[in-house]
Design a protein around this nucleic acid. Sequence first.
DNA 1: ACCCGGATTTGAACGCGTTCAACACGGTGC
DNA 2: GCACCGTGTTGAACGCGTTCAAATCCGGGT
Lengths: 221, 221
Amino acid sequence: MPTPTAKSEATRELLVSTALRLFREIGYEKTTMRAIATAANVSTGSAYYYFASKDDLVHELYRSLQEEHRSRALPLLREGQNLGELLKVVLNTGIDVMGPYHDFGSNFISIAIRPSATTSPFGSESAVARARAISLFRQAVGLSRPQPPLAIRDDLPELLWYAYMAVTLFWVYDSSPHQERTRRLIDRAAPLISRLVILSRLPVVRKIVEDIVQLIHGTRQ
Amino acid sequence: MPTPTAKSEATRELLVSTALRLFREIGYEKTTMRAIATAANVSTGSAYYYFASKDDLVHELYRSLQEEHRSRALPLLREGQNLGELLKVVLNTGIDVMGPYHDFGSNFISIAIRPSATTSPFGSESAVARARAISLFRQAVGLSRPQPPLAIRDDLPELLWYAYMAVTLFWVYDSSPHQERTRRLIDRAAPLISRLVILSRLPVVRKIVEDIVQLIHGTRQ
DNA sequence: ACCCGGATTTGAACGCGTTCAACACGGTGC
DNA sequence: GCACCGTGTTGAACGCGTTCAAATCCGGGT
């Protein structure tokens, strides 16, 4: 039999699933807190008992998307591919997953950027989520052959995640049909990034790459 | 005597200056449209007659900051300096100018990112403003000695502007006193960027740089 | 059975950005 | 002088996110 905690958890989950469904079906703006609450058969006050803000519910969407991204991308990564191919897979599956929410438009980034209350983008609260996202790129890097130079192997996943954020920004503003320009960008940029990584083996290049990595470390805290 | 157009223009300017003052003095959230209108001795409806949204008034702030940035940076740029020094100047004056608005926090970027109605960040409406911002970097590039390689000279200003956007993002989330971490980032990153540019003279590097430039051109439209 | 206290729920109310129908102003043509 | 009309101006009203005091639920101690 369900303990009180379990019932509460059920309400919470119902709110999340209702919110995500409405986000998908009618978009961000039309999905009001009142609409979510009504569709979940609770009062608006109750919705706020479980989630401090509408943004928090959007962050639930992000979490969900991220998990789906991971579960779609991982099976497609095969050891021995070069980094460019693996990158294409990860970036393209990412765009696949976000597809239904393209008309969130700039809200998609706006909200992600906002450190509203608990959940921020680069802050400590979402550090967990970010680490999990980066770990997907770590997988890709780990499976790639040839392996990237040691000097950057550890930091490459994070850098690739930043590249992914940039691609997402591009995608948000991509008004071409089915966002095909973003697809082209990915297919062309991925091999370039792969070549850049290889290039970092050259002594002269390596020197500066090491300095860049050091700058990142120095800036991290 | 003022023509009707002139009087209208005066009201508009009064609203802008009032809004910018309030933004500076009491921050983004407390500066409500009602507060702006009241302080300017007009009704809220009138404020909306001149500006379609509160975001539009924030975009006025951006425009103003950008002009001040330009007029502070340009006199400090001297021909013959290397790119790293010039970059430091442009980035640091940029941060100087934005300083008073640091507690806008993520709104600073959120709103810039939003393509709300007329004014967007990467859209055609703000293309003018963006071009003007990029031209500041074009000045810096033009004055730098040695001159950057021809292969990237034309596109470098735009790339540097993207770097500036990244620095701004970092600044927004920089909670160190006086955002000194951002200063350190600038002082260390600027020379690195300069070295990267020089590096692009190497034949192997040049090849990939040309491909990157081509990707940018191909993606532009 | 009863009551207590925390967990949960409610719906009214607040402040905000925004909209809009109605109105005031002021110059133009007669 | 007057009617006209486009340019401003107004304040009430709407819908939204959010808050909160009060009500309700419910398991455990007596």
